[in-house]
């Protein structure tokens, strides 16, 4: 029976495959967290939604803390309300997820921005924190 198991899958049994998947995903998490916290020297903070850049609250060289406002976007907010999709234009403020030093302010108020495209702010975050 054990010979069959060896020949049937990459792993001896599904149980091994399950554990390998748990270990694999844990490894990915550890690598990503370590990379972001300690290895990457700075992070580019990109827009999380399509919209228009309205205001940037920080200047180059400024020291900021986690939770500080960094920029605001004019976005179209879509929300289901009573089974109808409601769309309204709103100004949304975004905060920094980690403290650090603003290395560069790449965006300008009035810029049209696309989700996950182009940095607005480049931040040198405090080592050991997750930006």
């Amino acid at each position: 029976m054990s010979d069959n198991k060896k020949s049937l899958t990459v792993f001896k049994t599904d149980r091994h495959e399950d554990f390998a998947a748990i270990i694999g995903s844990a490894l990915i998490v550890v690598v990503v967290l370590t990379y972001m916290a300690f290895v990457v020297p700075s992070v580019s903070i990109k827009p999380q939604q399509d919209g228009k850049l309205m205001e940037i609250f920080v200047k180059e060289g400024a020291e900021i803390k986690a939770g500080d406002k960094i920029f605001s976007l004019e976005v179209v907010k879509k929300k289901w309300v009573k089974n109808v999709m409601e769309e309204k234009v709103a100004i949304q403020e975004f905060t920094s997820k980690a403290g650090g030093k603003v290395l560069k302010v790449a965006g300008k108020p009035g810029d049209k921005v696309k989700k996950d495209k182009g940095a607005i702010i480049v931040l040198e975050h405090i080592k050991g924190t997750l930006p």
């Binding site: 399950d18 748990i22 967290l33 997750l130």
Partner: peptide, 28 residues
């Protein structure tokens, strides 16, 4: 058994160990 891994990951997320929602870490 892999479902236990899923629950474990939710536990990490609930404890905010994986980074804040909207962070570049979670994005990566």
């Amino acid at each position: 058994i892999f479902v236990l891994g899923f629950i474990g990951m939710t536990a990490l997320s609930s404890l905010h160990i994986l980074g804040a929602e909207g962070s570049e870490t979670l994005h990566l």
